[in-house]
């Protein structure tokens, strides 16, 4: 069993706010609901964040009458340095990616780096076996649609 993790996407952005504030914007439901997985034309947005390691997060955004859901699980919560969570959008793909966000002080601001990895299916171990079964079921549904 190989454990292949492929970093496929990396973005860096500087904010004029200290790392603590930028970090909290990801986990504070009131703040996160205004920018994360939402769009200006959103008709309804729901946010459920169980902010603890192993806790689930789920955000649903309604656009043109259709609900779009992004969900995952928190893996690392290290305020204000590092946040790691899994992330999937089941409507589009049965796959889950792992997202790592790092926050570094930069003058009186913060340099935030996001990297998104595709976790190779081979690396799905016993811990995520339940998820693997769910992904398979979703893949079947997507294929049948």
């Amino acid at each position: 069993m190989t454990d292949v993790v492929l970093e496929t996407l990396r973005l860096t952005r500087r904010f004029d706010s200290p790392p603590e504030r930028v970090f909290d914007a990801w986990l504070n439901p009131e703040v996160a609901a205004r920018w994360l997985f939402t769009t200006p034309g959103s008709e309804r947005h729901t946010t459920a964040l169980d902010v603890r390691v192993g806790g689930a997060w789920k955000m649903t955004d309604r656009r043109d009458g259709v609900d779009y859901t992004a969900l995952g699980e928190y893996r690392v919560i290290d305020r204000p340095r590092r946040l790691v969570f899994s992330f999937g959008m089941p409507q589009f793909s049965p796959e889950f990616a792992e997202v790592t966000v790092e926050f570094a002080p930069d003058g009186d601001g913060c340099l935030m780096t996001l990297s998104q990895d595709r976790v190779h299916t081979d690396s799905i171990g016993p811990l995520t076996a339940g998820w693997a079964a769910m992904f398979d079921a979703l893949a079947g549904l997507v294929a049948a649609a």
């Binding site: 996407l9 973005l11 904010f15 200290p18 504030r21 914007a25 205004r34 920018w35 998104q116």
Partner: peptide, 25 residues
């Protein structure tokens, strides 16, 4: 995903700018 995150960060930047933290300038 690049578009998705870039747009999200734009929105985050707007929020952080409009609500300065008490300790901020």
């Amino acid at each position: 995903y690049q578009r998705l995150w870039s747009r999200s960060f734009d929105a985050l930047d707007d929020i952080l700018c409009e609500e300065p933290a008490p300790s901020a300038r």
